[in-house]
């Protein structure tokens, strides 16, 4: 299989206007296959969001290179849809207007936009809140609105930054199922950041574990399990995989904590 996204020796240095520069990513190399579902795990502050921002074309790539379909990433585009960790909805637009915004930019006729938006609003369970403003929604509802907005534009690549982080267990499970269904029936490559090791193992085909800051790829672990088996969470290989990954993440979390301590 050919690589859909190639991340080649990428560093990222933040230079805040005040204070010392922060090396967020160091020498990241990662090949992501066409149609792959890959999860990124790592301790807080290790650079997961930064890596997504670089793939999305939001931050300049200063060293190394990232290509999608062989073309270098230079700017954001609707071929790589992103769900931001903090939702980044347009607060002056209703849920419906948030979801239709990208469709409008694609030049879809009005009726089609509305119908398509409604489908995704229904899918994320926000039926009845189409005319609400983001400030009237709970955190989890905002997150689902953001997911609907990104899914609606049907991007080739989905960059998802802890997209279910604000959801309760029940809703999270429903959204996982929906995401898997979308991924299985349409050719999408998904890069999925999460803190939840179980979620990573369940959803992804491979899990990349990142080290404490500066973020490096510490390990890449295969995690192919039968997603249609309702008891997969309890199977021994699944539990072992979760344990293995937990061990890797915990080591880095401890390192990160020691570093932050004065």
């Amino acid at each position: 299989m050919t690589a859909k996204i190639v991340v080649d020796s990428v560093n990222h240095l933040y230079r805040p206007p005040r204070g010392r520069p922060v090396l967020a990513l160091e020498n990241i190399s990662l090949d992501i296959r066409e149609r792959e579902f890959i999860a990124l795990l790592g301790p807080s502050g290790c650079g997961k969001s930064t890596l997504l921002y670089l793939m999305g074309g939001f931050l300049p790539i200063e060293t190394g290179a990232i290509t999608v379909d062989g073309k270098p990433v230079v700017a954001p585009g609707p071929d790589r849809g992103i769900v931001f960790q903090h939702f980044a909805l347009f607060p002056w637009k209703t849920v419906r207007a948030n979801v239709t915004y990208g469709l409008e930019r694609q030049g879809l006729p009005r009726a089609e936009r509305e119908a398509r938006a409604q489908r995704f609003i229904d899918m994320v369970g926000l039926t009845g809140f189409e005319d609400s403003y983001p400030s009237q929604l709970s955190g989890g509802m905002k997150q689902r609105a953001a997911i609907a907005r990104t899914l609606a534009i049907d991007p080739d690549v989905l960059l998802m930054d802890e997209p279910f982080g604000a959801l309760d267990a029940q809703t999270r499970h429903l959204m996982q199922t929906e995401l898997l269904a979308i991924w299985q029936r349409s050719p999408k490559t998904v890069i999925f950041v999460t803190h939840d090791v179980q979620e990573a193992v369940y959803l992804a085909e491979r899990v990349a574990v990142m080290s404490a800051r500066p973020g490096r790829i510490k390990a890449i672990v295969d995690t192919r399990f039968d997603k249609n088996d309702p008891a997969v969470h309890k199977s021994q290989p699944f539990v072992d995989k979760v344990d293995e990954l937990w061990g890797l993440v915990r080591e880095e979390a401890i390192k990160a904590e020691q570093r932050e301590a004065p």
Binding site: P76, G81, I82, F90
Partner: peptide, 23 residues
Amino acid sequence: EVLWSARNLGASERRLQWEIVLP
């Protein structure tokens, strides 16, 4: 990230000023 969202959804720089930055 609000600006980034708009760019991600396909807003041109000109639209960005009118439709995102101003509101």
